[in-house]
Simulated assay, not measured.
Amino acid sequence: MKFYGINYLQTQSNLNDYLKYIIIFSTLFVLIVVFSLYMRHRLQTKYRDLTIIAFLFLLFISGVQYADYTNSQNVHSQSSQMVNFVRLLSKEKNVSVNAVFASSVQLTDGVIVKVGDGYYRVNLSADQATYSLVEVWLTNPDISIVNN
């Protein structure tokens, strides 16, 4: 079971977002190059066809990116909620913020937190305004801590 520290929760970045941006900007670059070739050689239809293909691909990728953007905004929001929750829990338990680890990067009901040597299950209310901690014991004590 993996547990994530506060440093990882604060600095996690999504490589997929960067990859999508690279694809979009490279397609835009190809579109500009092919369109300029089409404007130069108007009689050759291959550049016009390549321009249309690149434009449609850019349009498709932009639509996919917008859908992923709204999803990633929700994930980032929940990740920042987890950072705030870890800070709040460290104050409540009077431990260092670096001694609190969570089994998920998002604040959800049922997440397991490690505070010092103890493990707790977080029960959130429906509106996530209140929570309760229930002490739990792991059946598989083989854990790894990610704190980059």
Rank of each mutant, 00 (worst) to 15 (best):
Y4F: 00
P141N: 06
A54S: 11
Y47N: 14
N7Y: 02
N84A: 11
F3K: 02
S26H: 02
S132M: 07
F85G: 05
D17E: 12
I6A: 05
L133G: 07
R87D: 12
N148S: 11
M39N: 07
I23N: 08
K93T: 03
F85C: 02
D117W: 07
L19M: 06
L56M: 15
F57D: 14
L15V: 11
F85E: 01
I145D: 01
T11I: 04
F60V: 06
L9Q: 03
I53K: 09
V64E: 09
R48C: 13
N148H: 11
K20Q: 10
S103E: 11
V122Q: 08
V111A: 02
T139V: 04
T139K: 03
L56V: 15
V86D: 06
R40F: 11
I53A: 15
R87L: 14
V105F: 02
T45P: 13
A99L: 01
Y4Q: 02
Q106H: 04
T108M: 06
Y120K: 00
A54H: 09
K20T: 10
S104E: 03
D127T: 12
G116I: 03
Y120Q: 01
L88P: 08
K93W: 10
N140I: 09
I112T: 12
Y4L: 00
K46H: 14
V113C: 00
L138P: 01
Q106W: 00
L9V: 00
L133M: 05
L15D: 06
R42G: 15
S125R: 05
N7C: 09
Y47A: 13
R121P: 15
L88V: 12
V134H: 03
F29Q: 09
Q12T: 13
T139Q: 03
L9N: 01
Q81H: 12
R40W: 10
L31W: 07
K93C: 06
I22L: 09
Q106P: 01
V86N: 06
V30A: 09
L28P: 04
